[in-house]
Amino acid sequence: MTTLRFDANLKWLFTEHPFEERFDAAARAGFRGVEFPAPYAYAPERLAELLRQAGLSQVLVNTPMGPAGSPTRQGLACVPGAEESFRAGVLDGLRYATALDAPFLHVVAGIVPDGVERDRAFALYQDNIGWAAEQARGTGIRLLLEPQNKRDAPGFVLDTQAQAAAVVDTVGRDAAGLLMDFYHAQIDEGDLITTYLAHREQIAHIQIADPPGRHEPGTGEIAFDRIFATIAESGYDGWIGCEYQPLSDTVSGLDWMKGLTA
C-alpha cells in the first residue's frame, strides 16, 4: 500500500490570495506540490523562483486554450484549422514544463466545433497527439490525456476513460498517460472503482473534486474513503491534484486530508 500525495491546483485553491501569494499559502497548508493550468501570463523564470522560495514541486501545466466563446475555448487538439496554433502551444507547454521541472503536460483535447463530424475531429485529435508525443519524447515530460464531462463541457471530443486510454496505448505509454479526474468520470460514467482499476496501468495522474458542486471530498456523492483506499492499495504513487472549489476558505476545507498523508 502506498502513501497518498496531494497537490494543490492554484487555479482553484487559495484564491483568497493573489496568484503569486498562493505558492507560500499552499506550502504553509502542508502541500509539497502544485499544479495550475495556464502559466503563460508569467515568465517561466518567475514561476520557477516562486516554486523554489516555497519549496514546492510543479506537477503539471496545460497546453494553451483559446478565449472564452471561441471554438478552441476547451483546447485546440481536435479543431480543424487550428493545427499550427496547436503545435505552437505544445512547444510552448513543453518549454514551460521543462523550465518548471514539471513531469507532465496536459494536452487539452477540445470541443468538436459546430459543423464538424465527430469522427473527423477525433481523427485529427489522434494525429495531433501522435505529433505531440514525438515532440515530448526525450524531454522527460509525459503528455496527459483527460476526458471531461459533457455537462460542463458539451461536445468535448473525449467521451470516456477507455477512449482516452486507447489513445495512450496507440501513441505509447512512454510518451503519454491518462489523467483520470474522478469528478468528470463520476458525472459521465460512474462505476469509479471498476473504471479506475481497469485503466490503472495507463493512469499517470489523478484529479479530484466531489460532484455535483465540485467542492472538496465529503461534500457530494462520491465515497472518497473507498476511492482513496483503492488508489493506495493499487500501488499508485503519483500525485493527486486537488482541483475543486472550496465551500468556504481553502484551509478550513482541508480537514478531509487528515490521516491520508504521511
Rank of each mutant, 00 (worst) to 15 (best):
D174S: 15
A164W: 07
D188P: 10
A176P: 03
A162Q: 11
G172S: 04
H184I: 13
H184P: 05
A164T: 10
Y183W: 13
A164S: 15
D169Y: 02
A185G: 07
F182S: 04
L192I: 05
A162L: 05
I193P: 01
I187A: 12
A166C: 03
G177M: 08
M180W: 11
A175V: 14
A176K: 06
Q163D: 10
A185T: 15
I187D: 06
H184C: 10
V171D: 00
G190R: 09
F182G: 05
A164N: 12
H184Y: 14
G190C: 08
G172R: 07
I193L: 15
A166Y: 06
D174Y: 02
V167I: 15
D169K: 13
L178C: 13
A162H: 08
D188T: 12
L179I: 07
I193T: 04
A165W: 00
V167Q: 01
A166V: 02
D169M: 04
I187R: 13
L178N: 06
E189Y: 10
A166H: 05
I193A: 03
H184F: 13
D174A: 15
G172L: 06
D188S: 15
A175P: 02
R173V: 07
D169G: 10
L178T: 04
D169P: 00
A162T: 07
D169E: 14
A175E: 03
L192G: 00
E189M: 07
I193F: 01
D191M: 09
D181Q: 13
G190S: 05
Q186K: 12
D181E: 12
D169Q: 14
F182H: 05
R173I: 09
H184R: 11
Q163H: 11
I193V: 12
T170S: 11
R173K: 10
V168R: 01
D174I: 10
A164E: 05
A175T: 14
A166D: 09
G177K: 03
L192T: 00
R173W: 02
D174K: 11
E189L: 10
G190Y: 10
D181F: 06
Q186D: 11
A175M: 02
D191W: 13
G172W: 06
V167C: 04
V167W: 00
H184T: 08
G172E: 05
Y183G: 07
D191A: 15
D191P: 05
V168S: 01
L178G: 05
V171T: 04
